[in-house]
Design a protein around this nucleic acid. Structure first.
Length: 440
RNA sequence: UCCCCAAUAGCUCAACGGUAGAGCAGCUGACUGUUAAUCAGCGGGUUCCUGGUUCGAAUCCAGGUUGGGGAGCCA
């Protein structure tokens, strides 16, 4: 016997006047004597189920009375449009079957603190706002992959266990790898995806990446998901054009398909509607000037000497001057990764760009044109103090049919935080991994 | 690693040197249109830990633990 429902809340409008069976969990219940309102949550939405004592058996009414928050049940009744009901439709209940009881569900309709909610993350994901955020996360991921697929990109999965640090600088999680010594959890798929690019022309990798940085801010996780496209024969300008089209397409799809979720989150969508190409671009040098000219506007955004990288307050200040995501391009090579192509007219800066989200959500993309010349790449590996033997395979990519190429990495959680207006990144992934949290 | 803040009932908080309290949640009862219903009643405490000051400490002091916010680093 199947327990599957005959309808879902999301599609309930089709069933007006019909008898259906829904299956889900009790989100909320109000008793008024011989009348009981059950707000049923089935994953696709919530609907009010009205139980009148005279319409149901004694057993069903007793079941309705016994239902508690998050009890699971199957409810049968007829669908009716009613303007008094939240959502516009409600179910006139004829039968209720309790599946799983729920005693003293910890997350009540009242307020809770961050620590408590994080300890109960496995239950918190049932709550309306968390549900909306995670649905939009799923939409962002689907939109990103489908858009790239339509543009002729091939998904090319890169390893999570790696032998060396791809970028050499940040801290890595280490684990024992049999007789081969230490393995490290990947902090990027970048180097491997370049091998794929040489095979397929346009590729991307998508998966979790790991950074053992002791960062304790609302923009950081130790495990986060990144999508990294890489394109052969593409230069720095092509790269930025691709990024602005990519980001705009994702935002447009969320606005198109997840407007109800944005409403649940009370997200002001007017700024999102403006996210259309081209995005403003400023150089690192112009950004320094901007910072100097707006001294004191953002705490901590003090003027910097040429050659210093921005801090979070500087990014917030820069982004606040634009109504769309803004590219900051051509950073000093010294503060960027070893594989970035120098500007031919000005070798001390790299052909790279960071894309800063509006409203203080920080850097959502980092990208660059890559060095395609073997000799220059060898020199950079030396200058960065990296072990050449670890990069022989990567150097091979420059030995056998090298081409100018570019790519970028977009952090899914930061994009979701920005689109949903979620202040802290920990709510944009089902189970966040942070410096002081690995449970649940 | 550094700086700042917090910890009291299941949850959110109050009491700020003198008998530890409220709302919500739970339980009992009333109610045919509730949206975090309302009303009446009941149960619920190692005040994070260790030490100190004091006639007396949830309250003041020291150290620790746990958590939160931020910096650096980064997506």
């Amino acid at each position: 016997m199947s327990l599957l429902p005959t309808a879902t809340v999301a599609t309930i409008a089709r069933y007006v006047g019909q008898q259906v069976t829904l299956a889900g969990w009790v989100y909320h219940k109000t008793e008024k004597g011989k009348l009981i309102f059950i707000l049923l949550r089935d994953g696709s939405g919530t609907i009010q189920c009205v139980t009148f004592k005279k319409n149901v058996s004694e057993a069903t009414f007793a079941t309705a009375q016994a239902l508690t928050q998050e009890s699971s049940c199957r409810i049968t009744g007829s669908v009716r449009a009613d303007e008094r009901a939240p959502g516009g439709y409600e179910l006139d209940v004829t039968e209720i079957e309790l599946i799983g009881s729920s005693h003293e569900y910890p997350i009540t309709p009242k307020e809770h603190g961050v620590e408590f909610l994080m300890e109960h993350r496995h239950l918190w994901v049932r709550s309306a706002k968390q549900h909306a955020i995670l649905r939009i996360r799923a939409e962002v991921i689907a939109a990103a992959q489908e858009w790239l697929n339509e543009q002729g990109f091939v998904r090319f999965d890169t390893p999570i266990l790696t032998a060396t640090a791809a970028e050499g600088t940040t801290n890595l999680f280490a684990t024992d790898y049999f007789d081969l010594g230490k393995a490290y959890l990947a902090q990027t798929g970048q180097l491997y995806v370049e091998a794929g690019m040489m095979a397929f022309g346009r590729v991307y990798c998508f998966g979790p990446t790991f950074r053992a940085e002791k960062s304790k801010t609302r923009r950081h996780l130790t495990e986060f998901w990144m999508i990294e496209p890489e394109v052969a024969f593409a230069d720095h300008e092509d790269n930025m054009r691709l990024q602005e089209q990519f980001v705009s397409a994702i935002v447009a799809r969320v606005l198109d398909r997840r407007r109800e979720d944005l409403k649940v989150l009370e997200r002001d969508t007017t700024l999102l509607e403006q996210v259309i190409p081209p995005f403003p671009r400023i150089t690192y040098d112009q950004a320094l000037e901007l910072i100097a000219n707006h001294q004191g506007e953002v705490e901590g955004a003090d003027p910097l000497p040429w050659g210093e990288d921005f801090g979070a307050p500087h990014e917030t200040l820069i982004a606040s001057k634009f109504d769309r995501p803004v590219f900051v391009e051509r950073f000093p090579s010294a503060v960027k990764a070893f594989y970035m192509q120098p500007d031919p007219n000005r070798p001390e800066v790299a052909l790279c760009a960071d894309l800063l989200a509006p409203e203080g959500y920080g850097e959502i993309i980092g990208g660059s044109q890559r060095i395609h010349d073997l000799t220059l790449l060898e020199q950079r590996i030396r200058e960065h103090g990296l072990r050449r033997e670890d990069y022989e395979w990567y150097l091979d990519l420059r030995r056998y049919g090298t081409v100018p190429h570019s790519g970028f990495g977009m952090g899914i959680e930061r994009v979701v935080a920005w689109i949903t207006g979620t202040r802290h990144i920990r709510e944009t992934i089902p189970f966040p991994r942070q410096l002081y949290r690995i449970y649940p």
